[in-house]
């Protein structure tokens, strides 16, 4: 198999592209990665010496205070930023190659729906760019709108929907690409608590159903603990990993889980990590 062919396979729906028996596949492999922005006030060390492995089917959260580089790290994975040192592979290839293979779906902080397109046409946008046939597009639109409970709103324009529905539409748009990897940058940050809880539950169900790998940026401790199998605590100046917490919570979760001692124990550890990483500032 040529390299190009294997790359293509990785981008397609094949759930185990580099399968080795009894072992999980590494989807994202980051080693000694640093990123320095050159600004007029001198260099800013956005990321420093990041080492991280993310496996197939993981739900990984990046949590940390603003300026810790959690969004930047996600953007490096998505090839929206380039590292200045170190290596990173996504599906075994460079982030750029992975992006060109459409290996991931990216959900932004805001829905970023195009106001001149209906919800259905917004979800069709990546499919048009990929050049899929019309029938395939229609089938994926219907499937993914159903997945995020938006069936019946196909012909509405984004500005006719609530913020929560818009964000669900943007998730459907990311899912329509049918990526194995979902990158989410504080997707629910602008929503109120009730909508957010609801979408968190829906996201977990989706993840359980599809066995996708999710990398999720948040600054909410309950959200990170509730969703994740692995929590990466980052701290700022320079942006670096302070702690990586493997969650032993069951994969099937409901909102009641947040009252249990196990949940509170992990939340406590995350909070301690955030506090320690921050302490030198006070």
């Amino acid at each position: 198999m040529t390299k190009a062919a294997s790359v293509k396979d990785a981008a397609m729906a094949d759930p185990a592209p580099h399968s080795r028996s009894g072992q999980k596949n590494t989807v994202i492999d980051i080693q000694n990665l640093s990123l320095t922005f050159e600004t007029n006030d001198g260099p800013v060390h956005a990321l420093s010496d990041i080492d991280l492995k993310i496996e197939q089917g993981d739900f990984v959260s990046f949590i940390g205070p603003s300026g810790c580089g959690k969004t930047t790290l996600l953007r490096v994975i998505a090839d929206l930023e380039r590292q200045t040192a170190g290596t990173i592979t996504v599906n075994g290839v460079t982030p750029e190659q992975a992006r060109l293979n459409r290996a991931y779906g990216y959900v932004f902080q805001a829905a970023a729906l195009y106001p001149w397109r209906t919800i259905a046409r917004n979800i069709a946008l990546p499919l048009e760019i990929m050049g899929l046939p019309k029938s395939e597009q229609d089938q994926r639109i219907a499937k993914n709108m159903d997945l995020v409970n938006l069936t019946g709103f196909e012909q509405k324009y984004p500005w006719q929907l609530s913020g929560g529905m818009q964000q669900r539409a943007s998730i459907a748009r990311a899912l329509a690409v049918e990526p194995d990897l979902l990158l989410m940058d504080e997707p629910f940050g602008a929503l109120d608590e009730i909508v957010r809880d609801h979408l968190n539950e829906q996201l977990l169900q989706l993840w359980a159903k599809t066995n996708k790998t999710v990398v999720f940026v948040t600054h909410s401790i309950p959200e990170a603990v509730f969703l994740s199998t692995k929590i990466v605590v980052l701290c700022p100046r320079p942006g670096r990993i302070y702690d990586v917490i493997e969650s032993d919570l069951p994969r099937e979760r409901t909102l009641d889980l947040r009252e249990t001692p196990e949940f509170l124990k992990i939340a406590h550890r995350v909070r301690e990590g955030l506090k320690a990483g921050h302490s030198y500032e006070d």
Partner: peptide
Amino acid sequence: MQRDLMRTYASNYWQTLIKL
């Protein structure tokens, strides 16, 4: 953000021009 979105779709210059 809208341009980043097109970038994540590996959209080329003309596609981004016409669609965004």
